[in-house]
């Protein structure tokens, strides 16, 4: 193993990474060691995804990759080549907040907002998998997303409220069909 950065740098070749982000095909240049959250933030200029601990512990960098919750700080951009990614930027529709975002706003699911993009992406996936989660299920699912402000009570209330909003939208849609 090398103790010398330069010799290693000489072997590291940059490459083009192509991903679909929130439905739009995008590409950028990444050397292999570029982490996915840095690629999203600096290369694609999508700064909604936050960088917290940058070693996989806090969940601030949570995105969805091919529909699954993933931590973008412990994945290299080159590993994501060809993937379909969703970030918090894709949640609102033409300036109208997503029902999950509205629920977080109404139920005080955020204060400083640092953890919020990750919380929202994880919540969206939770509610797709389990549309009516219990408090225990919510706490377990979000256990990998750390919030230093809210004390989590507001977040649990937000997720419950979001579940209700989404089920009403769903049943209205079913009624119309």
């Amino acid at each position: 193993m090398s103790t010398n950065d330069q010799s290693a740098a000489a072997t590291a070749e940059e490459r083009i990474v192509r991903i679909t982000v929130n439905g739009t095909a995008m590409s950028g240049i990444a050397e292999p060691r570029l982490l996915l959250h840095d690629f999203l933030r600096h290369e694609l200029e999508l700064t909604g995804t936050h960088a917290g601990c940058e070693h996989g512990v806090c969940g601030a960098c949570t995105i969805r990759l091919n529909g699954e919750v993933v931590r973008s700080c412990i994945m290299f951009a080159v590993q994501a080549d060809g993937a379909s990614i969703e970030t918090v930027e894709g949640m609102a529709n033409n300036g109208v907040l997503h029902p999950i975002q509205v629920a977080f706003q109404e139920e005080h699911g955020l204060q400083c907002g640092f953890c919020t993009p990750g919380m929202l992406m994880a919540t969206q996936t939770l509610l797709e998998e389990n549309p009516d989660p219990s408090e225990d299920e919510i706490r377990e699912y979000l256990s990998g997303n750390i919030c230093r402000c809210t004390g989590y009570v507001g977040i649990v209330a937000s997720v419950k409220s979001a579940a209700k909003k989404l089920s009403v939208i769903q049943s209205n849609a079913n009624g119309k069909a």
Binding site: M1, S2, P32, L35, E54, G56, C73
Partner: peptide
């Protein structure tokens, strides 16, 4: 990468080559 990449970020691991098998 859930163990290896954090170890690389903390410079506890410094491989020169990664062979991605995923």
């Amino acid at each position: 990468g859930q163990s290896l990449i954090p170890m690389m970020s903390m410079r506890l691991a410094r491989p020169e080559v990664l062979v991605d098998i995923a």
